[in-house]
Design a protein around this nucleic acid. Structure first.
Lengths: 152, 152
DNA sequence: TCTGATTTGTAGCCGTGGCTACAATTAAGC
DNA sequence: GCTTAATTGTAGCCACGGCTACAAATCAGA
């Protein structure tokens, strides 16, 4: 921000330059991407604990279609972020924060799939696309979805 | 999926193990992410050429909210992928393939925004979320959107 | 024209999220 | 109980997409 009390206020309109909006939108999309992986892991770990009683790195890796080494690295990141815990050679668990995230993600996922189906997307396509879409759906949009589905 | 020739119909659809589906879905989302950046650049370059007459790295960078160095690196990737061309210290242009991609992306973007608005998402939120969502919308889902909007 | 600002490009760093290869630990079977 | 298989973890590689700092080229104005 060049602080000069110049005569010509130039292309600086009351608010923001028009391209700043766009830049901001792209930035949003980028940061959403950064948290997408954490969200997927949290949800999956929660699912595995619920259905299998435990979440083991190998299972996580198989479910996500990545190598176990990759899964372990990502789990380490979850731990750094305070979403999960694990002891050497033992399974993975979610912290309260991780559980909360998992619940939110799961609810959002369902809502997205349901909305897609409601507007005519075939079930299978809805499931596949939702996996990528869900991470970019804001709270506001989510509320609109719920309302549209009559779950206001 | 009608397929019940076995005794234990259970959760085994005779095709793939259940977790393979899920892995496949995640993989889809990952590859979509990889092409997202290319799509954004292609569309933006096309826009700039249309409105400004040329697409310069600095403008691209400002519009995307990244440093010019980052933009130039990404443009290099576009060139590697055969989507754009440029000569030293001259602007960036799209190849026919790049133009085609830009057109597809632009149409898809509009359709996604329109659908979001149609189900009740406020315009501004629709614009923001669409930026991230669009890259994960399959052809099939896109067709469903068009049909829902009465543009079958 | 030539000098300084702007634009463009290059170099090199970082974190992420893939991978393979290998080491360590745990679990299973004889 | 020991040996072997499976699982878990570590190390090190790669490409990507951010960044800053610096160099080179172009453009504009005096």
């Amino acid at each position: 921000m060049p602080k000069s009390k110049s005569y010509k206020l130039d292309a600086e309109p009351a608010d923001l330059p028009p391209e700043a909006d766009q830049a901001h939108r792209f930035e949003k999309a980028r940061t959403a991407q950064a948290t997408a992986l954490l969200e997927d892991y949290a949800e999956l770990i929660s699912d595995l604990i619920g259905t299998e009683g435990e979440a083991r790195p190998t299972d996580i890796a198989r479910r996500l279609g990545v190598s176990h080494a990759t899964a372990i690295k990502s789990i380490a990141r979850l731990k750094r972020e305070g979403l999960a815990t694990s002891k050497l050679y033992r399974g993975v668990f979610l912290t309260p924060a991780g559980e909360m995230l998992a619940r939110r993600v799961r609810a959002r996922h369902r809502l997205v799939v349901d909305l897609l189906v409601a507007v005519g997307v075939p079930q299978e396509a809805a499931e596949v696309d939702a996996e990528g879409i869900e991470h970019h759906v804001s709270e506001e949009t989510l509320r609109a979805f719920a309302k549209f589905l009559g779950r206001a």
